[in-house]
Design a protein around this nucleic acid. Structure first.
Lengths: 371, 371
DNA sequence: TTGAAAGCGCTAACAG
DNA sequence: CTGTTAGCGCTTTCAA
């Protein structure tokens, strides 16, 4: 455990064995009741004298009781539990990577009597999603993992599942006020800051040259493409990027464009940009394809450094041929596996996770493909 | 499992329960023997008719038998196993982060009858290390995690542990030919390539300016500080960096300096460098402090982009004040937790891991501290 | 060489 | 309301 100061060759006897890990049996003994009663008391299964229940709970915490995962798992073999994973069927394959993570984690718990089952829903059909969520109530589902639009009605549906005592974990995007056990996702503000640091350091000394542009703009200009600034999630990345640029290249001017996650619209707003003095472009959200294509049309595009998000085919192509310098990943597989793991742990030992599990901000360059 | 094409609201019956997961009991039934015999046969515990044993093994593979982790864990409570983690006591705190990961993973398996115990050894005393390794034989240790110098004698000592049937996982640096079950560590060549990509893209357009240096050198120059090129591990990063620079900034000239991981010696070789035209410095291994300090003495140091490795106090300071642009991390905590997890899984269900588990190549800038 | 049985910690079904 | 019991899959005695 603690770091031994001497190498201590074999000498240390150190009774490594779990010394006094208390079991339900110990508690029963201490409380002068049977194991069954302890089980009922600790799990609020009713049919137990409140006074006795209280005493049992006290003793349990005093003894530092923690349920034994292995035993519970073994018992669970009687009636296996399913963790339902609900994902939006979008065109990007981000969620396919997420699914792979979820299935993988599910397999890990197969011999613990727990498995994951992925169901896809149409992101444009809120009603169907709500029905789907509510249908998880009347099943032998042990818990729920969900990514969905944070509307009031979706949150309410999730809340009904939570109220039924089932653990729910949101992933990739949160459902605030839904009572979910945890949220697994990236710190988008940080993601934007990291993008800005890369951008600023790439532009760096180079922009002294850029300053000589005969035309107007006073400093280097950076284009930021985003989806819709009314969505908090979209604003977060832009905010982080802006903060980062201010810190790392205060002379720069930002041009924030809303493309509404649509190729045509993104292209339109990009075409309206005066390209003089533009030395960088950041795709926070929205159509990366539009950004890459428009850049080609501007004069001497090789001047313009490009940072994007996620690991899409367009991005890979851009990284390979040098049209994109770096992309920021958010570890899609973990966003699938961690929620499953969290629920499994909760089911097996009642462990409560942190409310927000931050997925790493991963910087990837062309080495992503070539290395 | 597979992605359902329709949202399938609750309708799908899909008997999620582990369908026919065969247990020892099933095998015993099929083979017409008792469960005890099956156990003995499958684990080569002797005292079993070779013909019968063979038949049992056949049936087991035919049925696709996989031992049940939870059951084994429960049984293990009788005689808990210890995973011994042997780490070198160096001045850097890299291994403290690694230790934290190992302890954390150990806790995860506490209720599976498995725990991790870290022991530190003097990296300069090979004899003591060997004694330490060999002392793990005669204990109730279930497996071994070790980081050590890849000398013949250390490898031989590890091999004796392997021959005793105990799983061994090397971490951070490998022990080739030791028969270890797996190695957890970074792809150093890739690490070097990533560093080069960052370096090249930071220098990027800027170096056209650099070209104008009145003096001699024909292109931009980059200094690479390493430890000792006779060590494969030290060479790998440099090779990766060289390959990356060739790919991303072929005009650049590399100056590889051996500092032998020593501050004084690193400083000496750095002082001998002609600073004209130097636009980048990469600390592959060796004294980062020496590199940072020498850079200050060169003319207009802000010209020189700096990439380092690991997360040391000097590095943090450098990132904070802008003297270091990026550092490449190798996820020390995972290098502690993954080996423990691998051995635990092996002990519990006989799962054999990949021979080399690559730790991620993490790019971190000042955002590591500020963000 | 093999079989039978006990028990790890937990929970659900059944008695009291 | 509470106690008893069986059994999840595996290993380890102890008998045969």
């Amino acid at each position: 455990m603690a770091r031994t100061e001497r190498p201590s060759p074999a000498s240390a006897p150190s009774h490594a064995s779990t010394p006094g890990r208390p079991s339900i049996k110990q508690i029963a003994l201490a409380a002068g009741v049977s194991r069954g009663t302890v089980d009922r008391a600790l799990h609020d299964r009713g049919d137990v004298n409140p006074a006795v229940a209280e005493r049992i709970r006290t003793i349990a915490t005093e003894l530092g009781y923690v349920p034994h995962r292995a035993a519970k798992a073994l018992r669970l073999n009687h009636t296996p539990q399913t963790i339902a994973v609900l994902l939006p069927r979008t065109s990007s394959d981000f969620f396919l990577q997420l699914e792979a993570g979820a299935i993988d984690a599910g397999r890990q718990f197969a011999d613990m009597g727990i498995n994951a089952e992925v169901t896809w829903f149409d992101p444009d059909d809120e009603r169907a999603l709500i029905r789907l969520i509510e249908s998880q109530l009347h099943q032998r589902v042990g818990g729920l993992v969900v990514t969905g639009p944070a509307t009031n009605r979706v949150c309410a549906a999730v809340r009904s599942v939570v109220d039924a005592g089932k653990p729910v974990v949101t992933t990739n995007s949160d459902l605030p006020g839904s009572g979910r056990l945890a949220f697994v996702g990236q710190d988008l503000v940080k993601s934007g800051r990291v993008a800005a640091e890369l951008m600023a350091k790439m532009i760096g000394g180079g922009w002294t040259a850029g300053r000589r542009a005969r035309g107007a703009p006073p400093g280097p200009r950076v284009v930021v493409l985003t989806g819709n600034l009314r969505f908090q999630a979209h604003r977060d990345r832009v905010d982080g990027f802006a903060a980062g640029m201010k810190r790392w290249l205060p002379a720069a001017t930002l041009e924030v464009l809303e493309g509404h996650d649509d190729y045509e619209q993104s292209l339109r707003v990009l075409e309206a940009v005066d390209p003089r003095g533009v030395v960088g472009a950041y795709a926070a959200t929205g159509s990366i394809r539009a950004l890459v294509e428009q850049r080609r049309r501007w004069a001497s595009p090789e001047r313009i450094r490009v940072v994007t998000n996620d690991d899409l085919p367009v991005v890979r192509a851009g990284l390979a041929n040098g049209e994109i310098d770096f992309t920021i990943l958010q570890d899609a597989p973990s966003q699938g596996s961690e929620p499953v793991r969290i629920i499994a742990e909760y089911l097996l030992s009642g462990t409560r996770p942190a409310s927000w599990l931050r997925t790493p901000v991963i910087v990837a360059g062309a080495t992503l493909i070539e290395g």
